[in-house]
């Protein structure tokens, strides 16, 4: 598998986990008075584990180059996702 494909897959997986963390984040819900009727089960620990898992996998495969771009991409993407102020529902 090419490093680019590995990078894309890892980043997509981590970003999904970040979105889950964002959606279930207690402080965010409280601050913006978000009412999540059909809320997902909440587990920050699982969310973080899922976020980091692709990075660990890349390291285990020895894909240092893909690991480093994953690190960079995920910090920027997570920030961009988290920085959007939610509209009250």
């Amino acid at each position: 598998m090419s490093p680019v494909f590995l990078f894309l897959a890892a980043t997509a997986a981590s970003l999904l986990a970040v979105v889950y963390l964002l959606y279930t984040d207690a402080k965010r819900a409280r601050v913006f008075r978000l009412d999540r009727r059909m809320a997902l089960p909440r587990s920050a620990r699982a969310g973080w584990a899922l976020t980091f898992a692709p990075g660990v996998a890349l390291l285990a495969l020895g894909e240092l180059s893909a690991f480093l771009v994953w690190c960079g991409a995920i910090t920027v993407l997570a920030w961009l996702v988290a920085a959007r102020t939610p509209i009250r529902d």
Partner: peptide, 10 residues
């Protein structure tokens, strides 16, 4: 860590 997902408040 706690504030990592708190978007800028308006």
């Amino acid at each position: 860590i706690k504030d990592l997902f708190v978007a800028p408040r308006l």
